[in-house]
Simulated assay, not measured.
Amino acid sequence: MSHLMQDIAVFFDDSDLGQSILETGAHLARDQNARLIGLASNEKNDATPEDGFARGEGIVDVIRRLESSSESHLLHASQSLANVAGRYGVTAEFRVIPYFGSDIDMQLNSFYSDLLLVGYPEALGTPFAWSSIKALQQTGVPILIVPRAWNGRAIARRITVAWNASRQARRAVADAFPLLLAAEAVDLLIVDPERRAERYGEDPGADMAAYLSRHGVQVNLRRASSQGRPVAETIVAHALEMNSDLIVFGAYSHSRISEAVLGGVSRTLLAEVPLPLFVSY
């Protein structure tokens, strides 16, 4: 059985930031020997204030111009995907998702991928009502959130795994396994293990570190004290100190609430992305 990802999807557009996200996806696809699926919405709104005053035949002209703009946008996006795939030597597929599409469109284009990449704070190329939380909840496909400042650099060489011995954290480890195996170093980080000592056993984190090591992961067990700081801040500080280029964590939510409210750590990490985040649900 292969321990590499097979299909990596990325939302992008033909903007500079969109191209940066695409570059990151191609880099990861090459490292994983995966197929790169480029996803783009068909909406490129180049409307002007004057368009709102169009009447009669003028309305038809505006519609034609906007349709032409959308077609041009998608053509440039598809060409960008082909160019990037060629440079990185990966197989690529281009898909268009309706900008005002349904959740079904999102699911059909996410279900059959191992990972979905998206930019932050601008999720370029995504449908109108798209959100990372909704995608996680509806598909279960892990998402890799790439911040604007990352600029297409390589990721997943040095990984920090935020471990709290929860179901969500265990799911994240399982989903990220192909990346963990390929990484040069993985830090299994536990913040304030004494707070919930019953979760970890006598030697907090040792069992999971041993599990990862037996499967071939180059893992280092780290324990850190928050010293009164928020846990998310402690995780980020450790990741930056260790020159990590990816944080892996499991998003936590209260199942009793119909529209899930994320736990404090998840909410902070997702809202303040300083480096790429691999989030599983």
Score class of each variant (00 low, 15 high):
3 H>E: 04
6 Q>K: 10
8 I>C: 10
11 F>I: 13
12 F>G: 08
14 D>E: 15
16 D>C: 03
17 L>E: 10
20 S>N: 05
20 S>T: 04
25 G>Y: 01
29 A>P: 03
31 D>R: 08
34 A>T: 02
37 I>A: 15
40 A>Y: 06
42 N>R: 08
44 K>T: 05
49 P>T: 03
51 D>S: 01
57 E>Q: 06
57 E>V: 11
60 V>Q: 04
60 V>W: 00
62 V>M: 00
63 I>K: 02
64 R>C: 00
67 E>A: 14
71 E>Q: 15
74 L>R: 13
75 L>H: 15
76 H>L: 14
80 S>G: 14
81 L>Y: 05
82 A>K: 07
84 V>W: 00
88 Y>M: 06
90 V>M: 00
90 V>Q: 02
96 V>C: 08
97 I>T: 06
101 G>Y: 15
101 G>R: 07
102 S>W: 09
106 M>D: 12
110 S>Y: 00
113 S>R: 04
114 D>W: 01
119 G>D: 02
119 G>K: 02
121 P>T: 11
122 E>S: 10
123 A>V: 06
123 A>D: 04
130 W>N: 10
134 K>C: 01
135 A>D: 02
136 L>V: 07
141 V>N: 13
142 P>A: 03
144 L>H: 14
145 I>Q: 14
147 P>H: 14
155 I>V: 13
156 A>H: 09
159 I>A: 08
160 T>F: 09
160 T>R: 08
160 T>Y: 08
165 A>W: 11
169 A>R: 08
171 R>D: 10
172 A>S: 11
175 D>H: 12
177 F>N: 07
179 L>I: 01
181 L>Y: 01
181 L>A: 04
182 A>L: 04
184 E>N: 01
189 L>Y: 14
190 I>Y: 09
193 P>I: 00
196 R>K: 02
205 G>L: 07
212 L>A: 07
215 H>N: 10
216 G>A: 00
219 V>W: 06
220 N>M: 03
221 L>M: 05
229 R>M: 11
232 A>E: 10
234 T>C: 03
234 T>R: 13
235 I>T: 05
237 A>N: 14
239 A>I: 04
239 A>W: 04
239 A>N: 06
242 M>E: 13
244 S>C: 09
248 V>S: 11
249 F>C: 05
251 A>M: 02
258 S>N: 13
259 E>L: 14
259 E>H: 14
266 S>K: 06
266 S>I: 00
268 T>C: 03
272 E>I: 02
275 L>S: 12
276 P>S: 05
278 F>D: 11
280 S>Y: 07
281 Y>P: 15
